[in-house]
Amino acid sequence: MAHKIILALVTATLSLAPVAASAATVEQRTTGVAFRDLDLTTEQGRAELDRRIDAAARQVCAIGETDVGTRIVTREKRQCYREARAQLDQRFARVISEGRRGEG
């Protein structure tokens, strides 16, 4: 099972859609990360954004959803999560930087 992360920054949310493809099925999950209500110049605002990013990555990569017969998180889900976090962190680092400069 392969995962691909696709990111698109829109006015108030970041959409994340990994595509899991196998010979039989294609699954696409999407979620948003709202951040316009946060003051990203404060540590508290950045901490809340980090919690939202983590929750979105976990939701999209199905972390916490049990597979039949096991509660162990698959290698594919762990890889999806790592890729999603890395891409979201990179994207939001730019948003935070712009917010600190007053451009957001």
Rank of each mutant, 00 (worst) to 15 (best):
T25F: 12
T25W: 08
T25S: 14
T25N: 14
T25E: 15
V26G: 00
V26I: 13
V26F: 03
E27P: 00
E27F: 04
E27A: 14
Q28F: 04
Q28S: 12
Q28H: 03
Q28G: 10
R29Y: 06
R29F: 07
T30D: 09
T30H: 09
T30P: 00
T30A: 13
T31G: 14
T31Y: 00
T31L: 04
T31F: 00
G32D: 11
G32S: 12
G32A: 11
V33S: 06
V33M: 02
V33D: 05
V33G: 05
A34N: 08
A34Y: 11
A34E: 14
A34M: 07
F35C: 02
F35Q: 04
F35K: 03
R36Y: 00
R36F: 00
D37H: 11
L38S: 06
L38V: 04
L38I: 04
L38K: 01
L38Q: 03
L38N: 04
L38W: 02
D39N: 15
D39C: 08
L40G: 07
L40R: 02
T41Y: 00
T41V: 09
T41C: 10
T41I: 02
T42K: 10
T42S: 15
T42N: 09
T42P: 06
E43V: 10
E43S: 13
Q44A: 15
Q44P: 00
Q44K: 14
G45Q: 06
G45M: 06
G45C: 06
G45L: 04
G45K: 03
G45D: 08
R46F: 04
R46V: 12
R46W: 01
R46L: 07
R46T: 11
A47P: 02
A47S: 14
A47L: 08
E48N: 02
E48A: 11
E48L: 12
L49E: 07
D50Q: 14
D50Y: 03
D50K: 14
D50E: 15
D50T: 13
D50N: 13
D50L: 08
R51S: 13
R51T: 10
R51I: 01
R51Q: 14
R51A: 15
R52T: 07
R52C: 09
R52I: 07
R52D: 09
I53Y: 03
I53W: 00
I53D: 09
I53V: 15
I53T: 11
D54K: 10
D54I: 02
D54N: 13
A55T: 09
A55R: 10
A55W: 01
A55S: 14
A56D: 08
A56C: 09
A56Y: 02
A57S: 14
A57L: 03
A57D: 07
A57H: 03
A57R: 01
R58D: 14
R58F: 03
R58G: 13
R58M: 12
Q59V: 07
Q59W: 07
Q59R: 13
Q59N: 13
V60M: 05
V60W: 01
V60G: 07
V60H: 00
V60C: 11
V60P: 01
C61Q: 04
C61V: 03
A62Q: 15
A62F: 11
A62K: 12
A62T: 11
A62E: 15
I63P: 03
I63E: 08
I63S: 08
G64Q: 08
G64D: 10
G64M: 07
G64A: 10
G64I: 06
G64L: 08
G64V: 06
